[in-house]
Every structure is written in C-alpha cells, then in structure tokens.
Simulated scan of single mutants.
Amino acid sequence: MQAVCYKSPIGILRITEEDDFITSIYALDEEHDVLSPETPLLKKAVKQLDEYFEGTRKDFDLPLKQQGSGFQQGVWNELSRIGYGKTISYLQQSKFLNNPLGIRAIASANGKNHLLIVVPCHRVIGTDGSLTGFGCGIWRKKWLLEHEQRVMGVGQMTMF
C-alpha cells in the first residue's frame, strides 16, 4: 500500500493506493506532512483533485476499489451517478435503489464511503435541504457543495 497526504482547500486529504487502485481518499483533522506522490496513480489522483478544486474537472477517471458488502457497493455506485453540482435527498436515493424503506441503511452505507469527492456522498442531503450525515464534517460538505455551485454558476443547489 502507498499513501500520500495532499493539501486541499478542505484540509489534508490522505489518498491511498493498493494493487493499482485508489482505495481511499479521506479528510484528516490533524496536521500531516505533505509529500509528493511517488507512484503514477497517486500522481494522477492528486492532479485530478487539483483540477476538481480549480473548477476544471467534474468527473474523475481513476481506478477505484473499496471494500464493502454488495449492498454498500450498490449504494456507492448510485452515488457516482449524481451529477456534478446536483444533490439528491436520502429519500430519493432510497427510491433510486428501489428500497424506499431502507433510508437508514443507505445513509449508513454512504457514511462508510472512503472515496471522498470521487464517490460524491457529499451530494446527498436531507429531504428538507439540510446538510446532514457527513463523517468528514458538515463544514466540508457545505464547502464542496458551494464550490460545485460556484463552478456551475448556480446560486442554489439543484436536485438530481
């Protein structure tokens, strides 16, 4: 396993690579030394995150793999379908997954997503528009959503 700590506008992001896949991108609350990535894949991940934060990248082209149950994989795949600058509610997500009674389980699976930004769990919000359920801090979720809205030139969040 290889890892790099990357300085972003939302703090230090730890990016890990294993077996030629990006396996996690996670925000850290404590300070870490920022080092240059050593592998071609980590360099590619850092470059694409730079482009995202600059507002020039809306989709990622990285080989991704994270461990999880079939249910979790399905939830994460659905997250990847949410368009840049758009949001959906947990209720909408449960309907897209044909599991309208599974909101809590789906929200729990969202919370186990370890590929911040690239698998955009930050784009799922409460039915009332509230920013809830983000393990890396609500302030980061708010920043990411506002960043995408600025890039899109939209004053308010739009639903999927």
Rank of each mutant, 00 (worst) to 15 (best):
P100Y: 11
G129Q: 06
G153S: 06
I117F: 06
H32C: 07
E17R: 02
K65V: 02
K141W: 06
E18Q: 08
I117P: 07
S36E: 10
Y26K: 09
Y52E: 05
E30K: 12
F71Q: 12
H122I: 01
S89C: 04
E54M: 13
Q67I: 11
F96Y: 13
F60M: 02
I106K: 01
V75P: 03
G83I: 09
E146W: 09
G102Y: 03
G133K: 13
G137I: 00
E31T: 06
T127V: 15
S8D: 02
P100F: 10
Q48C: 07
M157G: 11
N77V: 08
R150V: 03
L62E: 03
N113H: 07
V34G: 00
I82V: 14
C136W: 09
A109F: 03
F134A: 08
I117W: 06
T87D: 01
L101H: 10
V118E: 00
E78N: 08
N77Q: 15
E78K: 09
G153Y: 04
E54R: 13
L97Q: 09
P63C: 01
G55K: 11
T87S: 11
Y52A: 05
K86Y: 15
A27H: 09
G85R: 02
T158N: 11
G126H: 14
R14F: 00
I88M: 14
G74C: 12
I88Y: 08
W139F: 12
L97D: 08
V46S: 01
K58H: 12
K86W: 07
H32P: 05
S36W: 06
N99E: 10
Q72S: 14
G70T: 15
P37E: 03
V34K: 00
D59E: 15
I82S: 04
C5D: 05
D33N: 10
S94W: 04
T39K: 03
T158K: 14
D50K: 07
H122S: 02
V124H: 02
Q156W: 06
I22K: 00
P100V: 10
M1D: 02
